[in-house]
Design a protein around this nucleic acid. Structure first.
Length: 163
DNA sequence: TGTGGATCTTGTT
DNA sequence: AACAAGATCCACA
């Protein structure tokens, strides 16, 4: 009998819209955003299929965590392929106020031609904002895509004064 | 502005 | 093992 790891979750409100935060053993496992387009219950269901775990609703604990303050750092609970881990590690080097292209990330991990794959790997990032997937845009200047809706991506970038 | 090819990783069958 | 689907990019009409 294998015991399932316990995950705690709760909801919150931010500059960019409502969010779902998920933690396990003090580490952040997921941070999803919901909007008028995608409901709270939908992303909760999505999260629960993503992780093989047992879930406990812990609003107080989750509420107490200040996510967006400058200079905060958290530990992350990550699980993914080697390729994905490389992409996410590279993402974390992109600082607040900077933007890079998908191609740039591909080059930095030494796979200059895997641009498309980089895009999908970024999309699989579980921890929005803290692992700054919103700072990657199209080389052409277009916004590119965003798992939680382009509105949220736009708000994040504006908030960081990049426009 | 739109369409199609090149390219790579992943999940599914 | 084969295939389709991506948060891309480039060329060319």
């Amino acid at each position: 009998m294998k015991k399932l790891q316990q995950f705690e979750y709760g909801f919150g409100m931010s500059e960019f819209g409502g969010y779902l935060l998920v933690m396990t053993r003090g580490k952040i496992a997921s941070l999803y955003f919901f909007t008028s387009e995608v409901s709270r219950d939908e992303i909760l269901a999505e999260m629960m299929t993503r992780w093989q775990a047992s879930f406990v609703y812990s609003p107080k604990k989750i509420d107490a965590i200040q996510l967006f303050e400058e200079g905060k750092s958290f530990e992350f609970f990550l699980s993914g392929t080697d390729f994905q881990r490389k992409v996410w590690a590279e993402l974390r080097k992109v600082k607040r106020g900077e933007v890079v292209s998908y191609e740039e990330i591909a080059q930095r991990i030494g796979k200059p031609k895997a641009v498309r794959a980089v895009g999908t790997a970024i999309g699989r990032n579980e921890i929005a904002f803290l692992i700054p997937c919103h700072r990657v845009v199209r080389k052409s200047g277009g916004l590119g895509g965003f798992r939680w809706g382009l509105e949220v991506k736009k708000k994040m970038l504006e908030w960081e004064k990049i426009a």
